[in-house]
Computed example of a mutant assay.
Amino acid sequence: MLAATPSQARVVPLTLPGGFFLLASLALAWGAALLALNPEALSAYRHPVVLAAAHLLLLGFGVGVLVGAMHQLVPVIVEAPLYRPGLGYGVMLLWGVGVPLEAAGFLAGRPEWVAVGGGLVLLALFTFGVQMGLTFLSAPRWNRVATALAWVTFYLVLTPVLGLVQALAPRYGFYDPERLVWHVLAGLGGIFLLAILGVGHKLVAMFTLAHGVREEVLGLVLWTVNLGLLGLALGERTGGVLLAVGVGLGGVDLWRILKRRTRRALDIGVRHYVAGMGFLVLTLGALAVGNVLVAGTWFVLGFVGLVTTGMLYKILPFLVWTHRYAPRVGREPVPMLKEMLPERAAYLAGVLFALGALLAPGWPQALWLFALGTLPYTYALWEVVRR
């Protein structure tokens, strides 16, 4: 577990995941502000503001936190050192320039900016994929959480490839709207659904001190979600059924973990995770009745937003404490890990995020609640870093 391996955690400099978390938080604030200032954009999924905000919230915030965390998490899970940690700074630079360039391209109606930004992001995530792949190859043992992260790495590379093809297609006369569906499926399902269900299996068990939870259900989740995404990409309705089954199995896996927990009170990270899973159920319900825009809003703002912020509230304090205070333990007074995060601010942010996400489809002005949530969220993380 992360908390049991501080020596491994120090192998990766704090500035690497910390840099990704900082840039991701800026993308969150920009994307949330765009939606709040342009609530009418939710009426059309091809609206420039929606496209820009979706890339900021998903490719900027969600992927930024995920990639930053994987630099720290993968070596612990596979029990092998990260291959050339310095590569991460190049990944951060390319991704950190590419994402805002894409967003600006959507807003300004400049497809060439979108293509260049997408190319930079593709190069960044391809480099990250090579780095992760070589780390995986050095693993002395394997488990299903590692398998989930390997799949996530694959989709992290595939998604920008499909997006770049889509951006270049009108210019060269081979545009196909079906490829947009593939891009969305690879991004939402391949990256975020697999990452949250896969990494959540490990982190929720760790945060709740759950022991003896077997990984067979997680293995079934990986099979059903991947087959479901493939089916949907091929236009098969059974793909949707398999995807729903995968989500259901993810819920069963979460229930089994919580049933075996020894820490009865759920901490802030787990509460956010459970609330995010509730939004995932709402997303499936909206898809079942054919309301794609509502489903997308609940998935991005509710599911990804709550789970990602909740996990960050746990990961960042641990990293800061490990790098800054662990070497001083026993020699001078140091703060306890649970004292690192101002939880009232973090919970307030969670409430605003959840209400904004829940109400936005029927009352777009609620996007201001979501945007306001970025203020206590930023304060909470700043206090962690400042201590």
Rank of each mutant, 00 (worst) to 15 (best):
R263E: 05
L243P: 07
G200E: 07
G235E: 05
R271Q: 12
E236P: 00
L258I: 02
L203C: 02
I196Q: 08
W223T: 15
G200Q: 01
L242M: 11
D253Q: 15
T283H: 13
T238A: 15
L232A: 09
M277P: 02
F207S: 00
L194A: 07
L254W: 06
R260M: 08
V217D: 04
L194H: 07
I268F: 12
L229M: 13
L203H: 01
H211E: 15
G200M: 04
L197T: 11
G278D: 11
H211D: 14
N226L: 13
V274N: 01
H201S: 04
L243E: 12
L232V: 06
G248L: 12
V241S: 12
A205Q: 11
G200K: 05
N226A: 14
A205F: 02
K202A: 13
G235S: 06
L280K: 11
T238R: 14
G285N: 09
F207Y: 10
G200Y: 06
L222C: 03
R237C: 07
G228F: 04
T283N: 13
R271D: 06
V225Y: 00
Y273W: 14
A244V: 12
L242T: 00
A210I: 02
G235P: 08
E215N: 06
G231K: 10
E236G: 04
L209K: 10
L218F: 04
A265L: 13
A195N: 13
T283V: 14
L218N: 05
V252W: 13
L258Y: 03
F207W: 15
E216S: 13
L242W: 10
V199L: 15
G250E: 05
V221Q: 07
D253S: 14
V199Q: 03
A275H: 08
Y273Q: 00
M277D: 04
H272W: 06
T208N: 02
R263W: 02
V204I: 09
R260Q: 11
V241N: 07
R214M: 09
L242G: 09
L194P: 00
E236S: 13
R261K: 00
L242P: 07
L220P: 00
N226W: 10
L203V: 14
L220T: 08
I257N: 01
V213S: 07
L230W: 13
G248T: 10
